[in-house]
Computed example of a mutant assay.
Amino acid sequence: MKLTVLGGSGAWPTADAACSGYLVEHDGHRLLIDPGYAVMPRLLRHLRPGDVDAVVVTHGHPDHCADLNPLLRARALGEAPAPPLPLYAPAGALDAVLALDRPGMLHGSYDLRAFDPATEPDLASGPFRIATRALPHHVPNAGLRLTAAGRSLAYTGDTGPSPALAELADDADVFLAEATYPEDVPAEDAPYLSSARQAGEHAARAGARRLLLTHLWPGEDADAAVAAARRAYGGAVEVARPGAVVEPGT
Protein backbone atom coordinates (compact mmCIF):
# COMPACT_ATOMS: atom_id res chain seq x y z
CA MET A 1 0.00 0.00 0.00
CA LYS A 2 1.30 3.45 -0.91
CA LEU A 3 -0.08 6.83 0.19
CA THR A 4 0.83 9.96 -1.77
CA VAL A 5 -0.16 13.27 -0.15
CA LEU A 6 -1.55 15.60 -2.82
CA GLY A 7 -2.61 18.28 -0.36
CA GLY A 8 -3.49 18.86 3.27
CA SER A 9 -4.29 22.55 3.76
CA GLY A 10 -7.39 23.18 5.84
CA ALA A 11 -10.27 25.37 4.57
CA TRP A 12 -8.58 26.86 1.48
CA PRO A 13 -5.46 26.18 -0.59
CA THR A 14 -2.28 28.21 -0.30
CA ALA A 15 0.37 29.07 -2.88
CA ASP A 16 2.25 25.93 -1.86
CA ALA A 17 -0.44 23.48 -0.77
CA ALA A 18 -3.71 22.12 -2.08
CA CYS A 19 -6.52 21.25 0.30
CA SER A 20 -7.14 17.66 1.38
CA GLY A 21 -6.26 15.10 -1.27
CA TYR A 22 -4.72 11.66 -0.92
CA LEU A 23 -3.87 9.03 -3.51
CA VAL A 24 -3.74 5.48 -2.15
CA GLU A 25 -2.45 2.69 -4.38
CA HIS A 26 -2.08 -1.05 -4.06
CA ASP A 27 -1.67 -3.81 -6.60
CA GLY A 28 -2.29 -1.40 -9.49
CA HIS A 29 -5.54 0.02 -8.05
CA ARG A 30 -5.60 3.80 -7.64
CA LEU A 31 -7.99 5.24 -5.07
CA LEU A 32 -8.37 9.01 -4.67
CA ILE A 33 -9.58 10.24 -1.28
CA ASP A 34 -11.05 13.73 -0.75
CA PRO A 35 -10.21 15.71 -3.92
CA GLY A 36 -10.41 19.18 -2.35
CA TYR A 37 -9.53 22.58 -3.80
CA ALA A 38 -6.41 22.55 -6.08
CA VAL A 39 -5.90 18.78 -5.84
CA MET A 40 -6.46 18.15 -9.55
CA PRO A 41 -3.20 19.79 -10.78
CA ARG A 42 -1.23 17.83 -8.17
CA LEU A 43 -2.97 14.60 -9.18
CA LEU A 44 -1.95 15.16 -12.80
CA ARG A 45 1.70 15.00 -11.78
CA HIS A 46 1.12 11.33 -11.00
CA LEU A 47 -1.78 10.08 -13.13
CA ARG A 48 -3.93 10.84 -16.12
CA PRO A 49 -7.59 11.54 -15.21
CA GLY A 50 -8.70 8.23 -16.66
CA ASP A 51 -6.24 6.30 -14.51
CA VAL A 52 -8.15 6.93 -11.27
CA ASP A 53 -10.08 3.76 -10.40
CA ALA A 54 -12.37 5.14 -7.67
CA VAL A 55 -12.93 8.15 -5.42
CA VAL A 56 -13.94 8.17 -1.75
CA VAL A 57 -15.14 11.42 -0.15
CA THR A 58 -15.47 11.72 3.62
CA HIS A 59 -17.86 14.69 3.60
CA GLY A 60 -19.31 17.40 1.42
CA HIS A 61 -17.28 20.47 2.33
CA PRO A 62 -15.59 21.85 -0.80
CA ASP A 63 -12.08 21.70 0.65
CA HIS A 64 -12.61 17.92 0.50
CA CYS A 65 -14.48 17.47 -2.79
CA ALA A 66 -14.42 20.57 -5.06
CA ASP A 67 -11.85 19.17 -7.49
CA LEU A 68 -14.05 16.21 -8.22
CA ASN A 69 -15.63 18.53 -10.80
CA PRO A 70 -12.52 19.05 -12.99
CA LEU A 71 -11.65 15.37 -12.62
CA LEU A 72 -15.05 14.34 -13.98
CA ARG A 73 -14.88 16.98 -16.72
CA ALA A 74 -11.53 15.65 -17.87
CA ARG A 75 -12.84 12.09 -17.91
CA ALA A 76 -16.11 12.97 -19.68
CA LEU A 77 -14.96 15.59 -22.18
CA GLY A 78 -11.53 14.29 -23.17
CA GLU A 79 -10.82 12.76 -26.56
CA ALA A 80 -11.13 9.26 -25.11
CA PRO A 81 -13.85 9.37 -22.40
CA ALA A 82 -13.13 7.14 -19.42
CA PRO A 83 -15.59 4.61 -18.01
CA PRO A 84 -17.90 5.69 -15.18
CA LEU A 85 -15.89 6.50 -12.08
CA PRO A 86 -17.13 4.87 -8.85
CA LEU A 87 -17.79 7.59 -6.27
CA TYR A 88 -18.25 6.61 -2.61
CA ALA A 89 -19.58 9.31 -0.28
CA PRO A 90 -22.12 9.82 2.48
CA ALA A 91 -25.60 10.28 1.06
CA GLY A 92 -26.07 13.84 -0.21
CA ALA A 93 -22.44 14.86 0.29
CA LEU A 94 -21.74 15.31 -3.43
CA ASP A 95 -25.05 16.89 -4.47
CA ALA A 96 -23.58 20.41 -4.75
CA VAL A 97 -20.41 19.55 -6.65
CA LEU A 98 -22.25 17.23 -9.04
CA ALA A 99 -24.75 20.02 -9.78
CA LEU A 100 -22.12 22.53 -10.92
CA ASP A 101 -22.52 21.67 -14.61
CA ARG A 102 -25.57 21.72 -16.84
CA PRO A 103 -27.80 18.65 -16.52
CA GLY A 104 -26.49 15.72 -18.48
CA MET A 105 -23.04 17.18 -19.19
CA LEU A 106 -21.29 14.63 -16.99
CA HIS A 107 -23.81 11.87 -17.66
CA GLY A 108 -22.09 8.52 -17.70
CA SER A 109 -18.85 9.84 -16.20
CA TYR A 110 -19.54 8.57 -12.68
CA ASP A 111 -21.28 5.87 -10.70
CA LEU A 112 -22.44 7.34 -7.39
CA ARG A 113 -22.46 4.83 -4.55
CA ALA A 114 -23.82 6.74 -1.57
CA PHE A 115 -23.54 5.17 1.87
CA ASP A 116 -24.40 5.87 5.48
CA PRO A 117 -21.34 5.33 7.70
CA ALA A 118 -23.59 4.81 10.71
CA THR A 119 -25.42 1.84 9.17
CA GLU A 120 -23.25 0.65 6.24
CA PRO A 121 -19.82 0.34 7.83
CA ASP A 122 -18.00 -1.71 5.17
CA LEU A 123 -17.08 -0.82 1.59
CA ALA A 124 -14.69 -2.32 -0.95
CA SER A 125 -12.74 -0.93 -3.90
CA GLY A 126 -10.34 -3.17 -5.78
CA PRO A 127 -7.96 -4.72 -3.22
CA PHE A 128 -9.02 -2.28 -0.50
CA ARG A 129 -11.44 -3.11 2.26
CA ILE A 130 -12.78 0.11 3.70
CA ALA A 131 -14.35 0.26 7.15
CA THR A 132 -16.26 3.48 7.86
CA ARG A 133 -17.34 5.19 11.05
CA ALA A 134 -19.67 8.15 11.49
CA LEU A 135 -17.61 10.93 13.09
CA PRO A 136 -18.85 14.30 14.38
CA HIS A 137 -18.48 17.31 12.08
CA HIS A 138 -20.62 20.22 10.89
CA VAL A 139 -21.97 17.90 8.17
CA PRO A 140 -22.09 14.09 8.03
CA ASN A 141 -18.52 12.81 7.95
CA ALA A 142 -17.15 9.30 7.42
CA GLY A 143 -13.91 8.23 9.03
CA LEU A 144 -12.15 5.61 6.91
CA ARG A 145 -9.93 2.63 7.59
CA LEU A 146 -8.35 1.06 4.51
CA THR A 147 -6.73 -2.35 4.66
CA ALA A 148 -4.89 -4.31 1.96
CA ALA A 149 -2.33 -7.09 2.19
CA GLY A 150 -2.23 -6.82 5.97
CA ARG A 151 -1.48 -3.06 5.95
CA SER A 152 -3.81 -0.41 7.33
CA LEU A 153 -4.41 3.31 6.92
CA ALA A 154 -6.93 5.16 9.08
CA TYR A 155 -8.18 8.63 8.10
CA THR A 156 -10.46 10.92 10.06
CA GLY A 157 -11.80 13.33 7.45
CA ASP A 158 -12.71 16.30 9.68
CA THR A 159 -13.95 15.40 13.14
CA GLY A 160 -14.47 16.45 16.68
CA PRO A 161 -13.66 14.17 19.62
CA SER A 162 -15.26 10.72 19.45
CA PRO A 163 -14.69 7.31 21.03
CA ALA A 164 -14.95 5.89 17.50
CA LEU A 165 -11.56 7.39 16.62
CA ALA A 166 -9.67 4.93 18.81
CA GLU A 167 -11.56 2.07 17.19
CA LEU A 168 -10.94 3.44 13.69
CA ALA A 169 -7.19 3.79 14.28
CA ASP A 170 -6.74 0.68 16.43
CA ASP A 171 -3.24 -0.68 15.76
CA ALA A 172 -3.19 1.14 12.39
CA ASP A 173 0.09 1.32 10.51
CA VAL A 174 -0.65 4.97 9.66
CA PHE A 175 -3.18 7.31 11.27
CA LEU A 176 -3.90 10.33 9.03
CA ALA A 177 -5.60 12.72 11.41
CA GLU A 178 -7.17 16.15 11.06
CA ALA A 179 -5.32 18.67 13.23
CA THR A 180 -6.69 22.08 12.34
CA TYR A 181 -5.18 23.75 15.41
CA PRO A 182 -2.06 22.86 17.42
CA GLU A 183 -3.38 22.87 21.00
CA ASP A 184 -6.96 23.99 21.44
CA VAL A 185 -9.98 24.24 19.16
CA PRO A 186 -12.12 27.40 19.54
CA ALA A 187 -15.19 26.69 21.65
CA GLU A 188 -17.70 27.07 18.82
CA ASP A 189 -15.89 24.43 16.76
CA ALA A 190 -14.72 22.15 19.58
CA PRO A 191 -17.39 19.47 18.90
CA TYR A 192 -16.57 19.38 15.19
CA LEU A 193 -12.80 19.82 14.69
CA SER A 194 -9.61 18.51 16.31
CA SER A 195 -6.23 19.77 17.44
CA ALA A 196 -2.84 18.17 16.96
CA ARG A 197 -2.74 17.51 20.71
CA GLN A 198 -6.02 15.59 20.47
CA ALA A 199 -4.77 13.68 17.42
CA GLY A 200 -1.79 12.59 19.48
CA GLU A 201 -4.06 11.48 22.29
CA HIS A 202 -6.22 9.43 19.92
CA ALA A 203 -3.15 7.88 18.27
CA ALA A 204 -1.73 6.88 21.65
CA ARG A 205 -5.04 5.43 22.80
CA ALA A 206 -5.40 3.47 19.55
CA GLY A 207 -1.83 2.17 19.50
CA ALA A 208 -1.30 3.53 15.98
CA ARG A 209 2.25 3.06 14.70
CA ARG A 210 2.63 6.36 12.87
CA LEU A 211 0.76 9.67 13.01
CA LEU A 212 0.36 12.04 10.06
CA LEU A 213 -1.20 15.39 10.90
CA THR A 214 -3.26 17.04 8.18
CA HIS A 215 -5.79 19.83 7.54
CA LEU A 216 -3.71 22.40 9.43
CA TRP A 217 -5.24 25.87 9.25
CA PRO A 218 -3.36 27.98 6.68
CA GLY A 219 -0.53 29.78 8.44
CA GLU A 220 -0.38 27.46 11.43
CA ASP A 221 3.12 26.41 12.50
CA ALA A 222 3.73 22.81 11.47
CA ASP A 223 6.48 22.39 14.06
CA ALA A 224 4.11 23.55 16.80
CA ALA A 225 1.54 21.00 15.65
CA VAL A 226 4.09 18.18 15.74
CA ALA A 227 5.30 19.26 19.20
CA ALA A 228 1.72 19.32 20.52
CA ALA A 229 1.02 15.82 19.21
CA ARG A 230 4.26 14.46 20.66
CA ARG A 231 3.27 15.52 24.16
CA ALA A 232 0.61 12.82 24.04
CA TYR A 233 2.02 10.30 21.58
CA GLY A 234 5.42 8.62 21.62
CA GLY A 235 5.46 7.26 18.07
CA ALA A 236 6.57 8.87 14.82
CA VAL A 237 4.76 12.15 14.09
CA GLU A 238 4.85 14.21 10.90
CA VAL A 239 2.78 16.74 9.04
CA ALA A 240 1.32 15.37 5.80
CA ARG A 241 3.23 17.59 3.38
CA PRO A 242 2.33 17.77 -0.32
CA GLY A 243 4.31 15.26 -2.32
CA ALA A 244 5.12 13.04 0.66
CA VAL A 245 4.96 9.31 -0.04
CA VAL A 246 4.24 6.93 2.81
CA GLU A 247 4.11 3.15 2.69
CA PRO A 248 2.14 1.88 5.70
CA GLY A 249 3.90 -0.92 7.50
CA THR A 250 7.42 0.02 6.38
Rank of each mutant, 00 (worst) to 15 (best):
L212R: 01
G234T: 11
R209N: 07
L212H: 03
H202E: 06
A222Q: 13
A225G: 04
R230I: 08
H202V: 15
A224N: 01
R210Q: 07
A208F: 08
L213E: 00
Y233Q: 05
A236T: 14
A204M: 10
H202P: 02
A236Y: 00
A228V: 05
D223Q: 10
A203H: 02
G235A: 15
G207H: 10
H215N: 14
G234Y: 00
A225L: 02
A228S: 12
D221E: 14
A224F: 05
R210T: 04
A203Q: 02
L213D: 04
R231Q: 15
Y233C: 02
G234H: 06
A240W: 07
L216Q: 03
A204T: 07
G219E: 08
L213F: 00
E238N: 08
A227Y: 02
A203F: 03
G234W: 09
A229S: 05
A225M: 07
A204N: 10
G219A: 12
A229V: 12
L213G: 03
R231H: 14
V239H: 08
T214H: 12
A227W: 02
V239R: 05
E220C: 15
T214S: 15
R231P: 07
R230G: 04
L211E: 00
L213V: 09
A227N: 04
G235Y: 07
G235P: 14
E238D: 11
A225Q: 07
E238K: 03
V239T: 13
H202T: 14
P218E: 10
E220R: 15
L216I: 09
Y233K: 01
A224I: 07
A240R: 04
V226H: 00
H215W: 09
G235M: 14
G235S: 08
R230Q: 13
L211W: 05
L216C: 06
V239C: 08
L216G: 05
R205S: 07
A232K: 10
G207A: 12
E220D: 15
G219P: 05
